[in-house]
């Protein structure tokens, strides 16, 4: 474990806490893409299939359980909780996210570390996470003004994988045999998708103005 990865995991956890706070405090999921939440639930379920078979550390197991439980809880809230469900705007959240699932799985069948069930689902989860934010970014562009908590949620979610890139650089420089091309390349693509959001987020922070993404 290094400081970049720990900071990345904590930023990821923070993004989830901010989203939970937004949904709990406002009893609303306006501006939140249910599809992105569903994709993230699939990402964690596919990536942590080895939750009970591979013990790495208490921290690792604990965080995996937190990520799986929180992502499922958020999807449940948006789909089932009567107050929150009413605020979900399905006319804005129209990204065909099943295409992202299909494309990621197809890519994982060709590009993986080993042709085993666990490794194909691991690679699938890496590719899917890289594009999972797309429905959310599209929804933000459509919904015009973005409430602070939702903006902060997306910011921290994008920042965490950026910190992981620093972690991979650090490990590449300090560990002799460290190579994680699938995770690294996907992580760079994932972080790059946030580039314009980060730009408008920085502008809104600098001008102390409302975050607004151009349509």
């Amino acid at each position: 474990m290094n400081i970049f990865r720990l900071a990345g995991d904590m930023t990821h956890l923070l993004s989830i806490l901010v989203l939970l706070l937004k949904i709990y405090a406002t009893k609303s999921c306006s501006g939140v893409s249910r599809k992105t939440q569903e994709l993230y639930a699939i990402v964690f379920l596919a990536r942590y299939l080895d939750l009970f078979t591979d013990f790495i550390s208490v921290y690792n197991t604990f965080m995996k359980i937190v990520f799986i439980a929180s992502s499922l809880a958020i999807v449940w809230c948006i789909r089932v909780h009567p107050m929150v469900k009413r605020s979900y705007d399905k006319d804005l959240d129209t990204f065909r996210h099943y295409l992202l699932v299909a494309a990621s799985f197809l890519l994982a069948l060709f590009l993986h570390e080993k042709f085993t069930f666990l490794e194909i689902f691991w690679a699938f989860s890496i590719y899917l996470e890289a594009v999972a934010i797309l429905p959310q970014l599209v929804l933000l562009q459509r919904s015009g003004n973005v409430d602070n908590l939702t903006g902060q949620y997306v910011f921290f979610l994008g920042a965490y994988r950026g910190l992981y890139i620093l972690n991979w650089i650090y490990r590449y420089l300090t560990e002799p045999r460290f190579t994680r091309w699938i995770a690294c390349v996907s992580g760079v693509v994932q972080t790059a998708l946030y580039a314009d959001f980060f730009y408008y987020y920085f502008i809104s922070w600098k001008n102390n103005s409302k975050l607004k993404l151009p349509a």
């Binding site: 474990m1 995991d9 080895d50 591979d54 790495i56 965080m63 995996k64 570390e113 972690n167 560990e175």
Partner: peptide
């Protein structure tokens, strides 16, 4: 042992 495992990252 942690770094020996392959997928030791979240």
């Amino acid at each position: 042992a942690e770094d020996g495992k392959y997928h030791d990252e979240l």
